[in-house]
């Protein structure tokens, strides 16, 4: 169910983690705690990111 799926894409060798929320908003983070915190904060801060 895409409705509750939060996704993080990472290419090893690079430093960025791309967080993709179920709402479509995306966010580039530098560490996994940052990226999950942002994803779990939905909808806070997700409108601006889109």
């Amino acid at each position: 169910m895409a409705g509750t799926t939060l996704r993080v894409v990472w290419t090893p060798g690079t430093d960025d983690l791309l967080g993709i929320c179920h709402c479509g908003a995306e966010y580039l983070a530098g560490d996994p705690i940052d990226v999950w915190s942002w994803l779990l904060a939905h909808p806070d801060g997700h409108e601006a990111a889109r």
Binding site: T5, V8, V9, L39
Partner: peptide
């Protein structure tokens, strides 16, 4: 060099 995708499906 392979992208890794992580999904949390609650």
């Amino acid at each position: 060099d392979t992208p890794i995708s992580t999904e949390a499906d609650s």
